[in-house]
Computed example of a mutant assay.
Amino acid sequence: MSAASPVLAAGVLAWRVVDDQVLVLLVERTQHRDHSLPKGKLDPGETLPECAARELDEETGLAIALGAPLGQSEYRLPDGRDKVVYYWQARVSEEAFRAARPFEPDDEILALAWLPLREAKRRCTYEHDVAIIERFEERLAAGHAETFPIIALRHAKAANAFDWEGPDASRPLTPRGLRQAALVAPGIGAFAPERIVTSDAARCVATVEPLRRLLGVEPKASAEISQDAHEAPERDPRAEIERRIAKAVRKRRGTVLCSHAPVIPEIVTAVVHAADAAETERTHRASMLHTAEFTVLHVAAGDEPALVALETHGPREA
């Protein structure tokens, strides 16, 4: 790795409510004897959300669904390289807390501590961890600590349309596309969506197959979010997309929608409208996806829907 390449890592601000008090989780590292939020470096091929969920599981025994991103911290390592750590908030239900593996100290993590927000900030060794906790406090005060994801996923790389002799909807994924679909599935799965909706085109159905296996959620194929429906002059699929998204938001149901480049902007816009948010340059950029990229729109799970955050990820191919 060159000196100019930053070290990428991901972490989680895990929180739970005990006796009406919000507690956050800090870890004490064995070698450094410091206190910080759980985090760790990316493994080859991982997406950042996948890394965050994996590191929390490995360091604390907690298997959780990621919530909204909390931003990032950047600092210089002793060897002179820059390190960038991306963080997510994640509520730990009592069920997940009880199901966690019993913690045993090892050569990486010495102890875990669930602390009230003020005590956690006081205990943190590093100011960049304090800043992440303070961002979470702002979310908590705004009623945005709990969210659910609506995920727009563009299908992976498919056979070239100009070379394919059959109907466009029958184009299969290429070997590269199959690899892309496998690489992004764990990153999408880190948000634990409850429902998968896919265009009925072969390339979209194949893209969500690794996700189906990972989550055990059977996809629903829909012609309404296909490219054929989008291009049909006698139909307006936008109304169906708006209806589908509005229902998912109303039910607070984490949903993946796998579709095509011309349809993805309509999906993102429908989420923005359902969350009573404004269309911006950022939401526009979030809809311009390359193959196998996905945008996660985090909607507040309270009484009033609000677009809390959005983020875009893709396969980290070699």
Rank of each mutant, 00 (worst) to 15 (best):
A53Y: 01
E55Q: 13
G40A: 08
S36H: 09
E94H: 15
L112Y: 00
R81P: 02
E127K: 10
G40Y: 05
V130D: 01
F136C: 04
E119I: 06
I109W: 04
E119Q: 15
G61P: 02
L112R: 03
S93P: 07
L110I: 00
K121G: 09
I109L: 04
F103A: 05
P78S: 08
G80M: 09
S73W: 02
E94R: 13
R54C: 07
E55Y: 01
Q72M: 12
A65N: 10
W114G: 07
V130C: 05
V84I: 15
E95S: 12
I133K: 06
L70M: 06
L48H: 07
E94I: 01
H128S: 03
L62H: 12
A65L: 02
F103L: 06
R98K: 10
D43A: 14
L48A: 07
C51M: 07
P116I: 08
D106E: 07
T47V: 07
A96N: 11
A113R: 10
E95H: 12
D43K: 12
P102A: 11
G67N: 10
K83P: 00
G61V: 04
E138Q: 14
L48M: 04
D79A: 07
V85K: 06
A131T: 11
E59Y: 01
G71V: 04
A52L: 04
L77V: 02
P44M: 03
A90R: 10
R91M: 13
D107M: 08
G61L: 02
E55R: 14
L37T: 02
R54G: 06
A53F: 00
E137W: 04
L112C: 02
W114M: 05
G61F: 01
P102R: 12
A65M: 03
L56E: 03
L48C: 00
R81T: 05
E104T: 15
L42T: 11
L77I: 03
R139D: 12
A68W: 03
E50L: 00
V84A: 01
A65W: 05
A65C: 12
Y86C: 00
R91L: 09
E74T: 13
D43W: 07
K41T: 13
P102C: 05
E108Y: 05
A131E: 14
G80I: 09
K121M: 15
P116H: 10
Y87M: 04
E94L: 12
S36A: 13
E46H: 10
L77M: 13
P105L: 08
S36D: 04
F136N: 07
T60M: 08
K39C: 10
L66R: 11
E50S: 13
A90I: 11
E104C: 11
D57I: 00
E104P: 00
L115E: 14
W114P: 07
R118E: 15
R54M: 10
V84P: 00
G40L: 05
A68K: 05
I64W: 06
G67T: 09
R91F: 10
A53C: 02
G61R: 04
R91H: 13
A100Y: 01
P116T: 13
D106C: 09
R122A: 15
T60C: 13
A90D: 11
P49F: 04
F103R: 03
I109K: 04
L62Y: 14
R139Q: 12
G80L: 08
D43Q: 14
D79R: 05
A68M: 06
R118F: 02
L37M: 07
E94A: 13
R139V: 00
R101C: 01
C51P: 08
